[in-house]
Write a protein that binds this DNA or RNA. Structure first.
Lengths: 210, 210
DNA sequence: TGACAAACTAGACCGGTAGTCTAATTATTA
DNA sequence: TAATAATTAGACTACCGGTCTAGTTTGTCA
């Protein structure tokens, strides 16, 4: 009656045993993307046999899912989403800015997380992982969009999923660019650029003025 | 002295012989993305042997390049880039809107082209193809950004490449969403949505007002 | 026309990939 | 202790992109 799926078995493992598989997986997926990653290489790194691995995951995509899930959880744990109830658009965007800055900090401090996040838009398969993940961060982000709309701080003239994907995609693109050019930026430039990026995101998300 | 590269040989072929290889390649890349595409399958479709194919291309990425190049040329041939010299921001954006609408039309009429375009941001490899392509459409687009900046119609507070990638990425994301949801939209909705998308693009690209 | 060279083609082959399967081993429970 | 369930090892399959060699076709010039 109670089918035991490979993922259930993985989830049942103590975190450090999960890490034995997920750490190398994260490194490989971050470095090579989903398609480019070699499962064989991951297993070699993890010191696991095929049979053992496939006892805990159902396929490569499943391992990717598990990896993304854990990474997003890690990201969420470093964030503070207590957003309260902003009174109006200005307050909403003030808090969004704090959030944006925080995410930028985290991404820049955790290259692997950043690379992993950028890979999520690689293909239909991997995009599906993002859409399906119940890691709190995605639904939280979607809730923020809804809240912004209620406050009149976020445009309401296109489908939710489209708006979300557009903003998320922009943020990832910014992140990707930052990661690639980080070394050529001094601190003041980086700060200015970060503000410009946020302004652009805000401009895109804000309702059209009459 | 004059090294003959595989690509030169492909280029020297009459268009219909090129098409024998590029048509199946385009179909496969559009359907599966770059990484997911099977070269063997393409060759089977094209009725070509390995040896023959590798006489005309140097590797899979090279075939992808050739495919993208031809597709972009096809797109460019359907566009009208005569932009004149708009006097100010308002005029600039008016003409951009016509351009945007035209591209949307073309993409919706040519699913394969749309799918192919969306795949270009799949990985670092494929992004490189976009960056390196000298197909007129890319440089033309980049020139438009520069023109807009001269007119004060486009923001100038971040690096050119970043701005371009952000806007291009947004447009592709919109396109992707449209392609995926086209069937659920009636004409008036589609029109309204198209205007909203353009407004968002314009808002993102416009300079921040004081 | 014949001979030689250049252009081109076929497909076996190589080391890799994700995933399957069976047989053996270890852990658990009766 | 014996039987059963959980877990693991790794050979094996079909396919991948790419290489290589041996062969055929085409063009050129004597």
């Amino acid at each position: 009656m109670f089918e035991t799926t490979p993922r259930d078995r993985l989830a049942a493992l103590p975190p450090e045993r999960q890490a034995q598989l997920l750490d190398p997986a994260e490194a490989e997926f971050a470095a090579q993307g989903f398609a480019g990653a070699s499962l064989n290489r991951i297993l070699e790194q993890a010191g696991m046999s095929k049979g053992q691995a496939y006892y805990y995951i159902s396929d490569k995509l499943d391992l990717y899912r598990a990896t993304i899930d854990r990474a997003f959880r890690r990201l969420a744990s470093q964030m503070d989403f207590t957003f309260g109830t902003p009174a109006g658009p200005e307050e909403f965007w003030g808090r969004m800015k704090a959030l944006f800055t925080r995410i930028t900090e985290i991404m820049l401090a955790d290259e692997r997380l950043a690379a992993l996040a950028c890979g999520i838009y690689e293909s239909a398969e991997t995009r599906g992982v993002l859409a399906a993940t119940d890691a709190s961060i995605r639904s939280t982000a979607a809730d923020l969009v809804t809240l912004g709309q209620k406050l009149g701080a976020v445009r309401d003239d296109m489908p939710h999923s489209l708006l979300f994907d557009l903003l998320f995609g922009m943020a990832l693109e910014m992140d990707r660019w930052l990661a690639a050019h980080w070394h050529e930026l001094d601190e003041s430039e980086a700060l200015r650029l970060n503000m410009a990026m946020f302004a652009m995101l805000r401009a895109a998300a804000s309702p059209v003025k009459e």
